[in-house]
Amino acid sequence: MDRPPRPFWHPLTAGLLLGLALLATFLITGHGLGASGFFTRLTTAVANWLAPSWTAANAYLGPSVQGGVNPLPAWITWEAVGVAIGALAGSLSSGRFRAMVEGGPATPVGARLVWAFAGGILVGFGGRLARGCTSGLGLSGGATLAIAGFVFLIFFFAAGFAVSYAARRAWR
């Protein structure tokens, strides 16, 4: 590393640009940005590969593979691919890219990965229950002034604060 990494942007700059990107998305597509919808499609594809008959018979995943349809090709998939490319371009060009496991400085790598896996399970399940996540409901729903968006945000932040306090050891 010859050049030091560039600092993160000021939150006002990032917020203004994120708001303009979200507005552009609404004007181009008629809906906002999302993320968990892609992981539903990815899960459907993985399940269909590992257990095709279970997937076809499943009440939630079955309809999206009916007639041998591939669940992956969709706007939300191209968007998720774009997010990965955009993040890669941003982190590489700023010197912020780093192949690493990031966690609390005093937390062993193994423990961090167990927390990451457990948190991922809760988020995957919660996203399907809520019919969206921080992007689709919180950010995009909030921008349309949807009640669903603000109910989501209230419970998201309340649980986040409570669990973060209870599990503060995890990030030491």
Binding site: A35, G103, G120, G126, G127, F155, F157, A159, A167
Partner: peptide
Amino acid sequence: AGGALIGAGFALGGYCPG
């Protein structure tokens, strides 16, 4: 409930889907 689970999973796992 889904929002609370995402908040909890975010606090433990460090991310949300996006």
